[in-house]
Simulated scan of single mutants.
Amino acid sequence: MNKRTVQDLAEVAAFQVSDQRLFSATHEEIISGLTTDIYFIRTRELLRHLGLDRTRVTAEIFAGKPGVLAGIEEAKVLLKGLPIEVWALPEGTEFKEKQVIMRITGAYDDFGIHETSLLGILASSSGWATAARRCQEAAGNHKMICFGARHVHPAVAPVMERAAIIGGADGASCILGAKLAGQTPSGTVPHAVMLIVGDTLEVAQTYQRIMPPEAPVIVLVDTFKDEAEEALRVADQMGEKLQGIRLDTPSERGGVTPGLVREIKARLRQAGHAHVKIFVSGGVTPERITLLIEAGADAFGVGSYISGAPAVDMTMDIKEIDGHPIAKRGRIPGITESAGLEKIL
């Protein structure tokens, strides 16, 4: 991949955007520096004019609040091939407020232009990973899948779902997000197919018959009838072939409540279907996960709680110039001790 970056303000002025494109940046545009803040281009021109662009510096990136680190592998792609050295905490590491999560040493002109993108990658990914970790902690040994792709721009949906897996999600529904994490996408079918076919049981039986053997038979039971009634109807007809039911009751009908889960769990058990698991999605949060597990839920699909998580603000500071400690006012000059940093480039 071409690693050439934007060289000056004239190049910025000459760059034109087409009205026939999606608004998300391409990989090439990100790597070239077109998603950076303009003041980094001005910095490049000033330093080159003064003959200081090859000044060797050490910069550190630290977090504004505690969280779970994600985005390191993508950051490596952004920085790979540059004549710099990079140290970072491993992805999945829990970090503290103000803790250094990455350190970069090299000529400022070689990496300074990437600060905006680098911080954005780490901030957003870590925010999503942190939210997923909170859900995973609440779920414990119960399965938790990220269903958040529909809540964010498609350009970043895979980034978000991969970060969720780094944070602790057992899987993701977004095809590319799961593939980036080395997994198979998770999910069965939506309400749309139920509505088009017109019968939940027919969809369930057809799904079981034509889908690959490894595809779990988990059936939505809230499209047409009372959830408990539909769950029993499907379970009675499918028996051991049915692995689980999914509850996604809309907020207009009160959502999936602990009481509903408790009732369905009891009715399935009384009818001889204790093997049928209950998968809950729709408005799931860590607090609701705890209550739903107590009621008998077995697994969860989490969407907006993860996808809507705030980014973990990241800051990059120069801490050494040509080996000499330095810092702006309010920060301590020199390299900061940070246990766990590993050389990645």
Rank of each mutant, 00 (worst) to 15 (best):
T58P: 07
E252V: 04
H153G: 10
L232F: 05
F147Y: 10
V17A: 11
G112F: 02
S281P: 02
I335D: 11
E97Y: 02
R103G: 02
H151C: 05
H275G: 03
V17L: 15
E28W: 00
E74N: 07
R329P: 08
I306Y: 00
D248F: 02
D298F: 03
T58I: 09
V203L: 13
Y39S: 14
K179L: 14
H324P: 05
L89I: 00
L47F: 02
A63Y: 00
D298N: 10
M194A: 14
E74K: 08
S281R: 12
V234I: 06
F224Y: 03
A299W: 05
H191Y: 14
V189Q: 10
L52K: 02
A59F: 10
P213I: 10
G67E: 04
E287C: 08
A274R: 11
R253I: 05
R267Y: 07
L260C: 05
A138W: 06
V312D: 00
E137C: 09
A14E: 05
G282W: 12
D19M: 11
P154F: 06
G272V: 01
T130G: 01
R331D: 04
G255R: 08
A204W: 01
K80Y: 04
S124D: 00
D199L: 15
I121S: 00
K96S: 13
T58Y: 09
V6G: 07
T188I: 12
D322H: 09
S251Y: 00
T206S: 13
L345D: 02
A192D: 12
D110E: 12
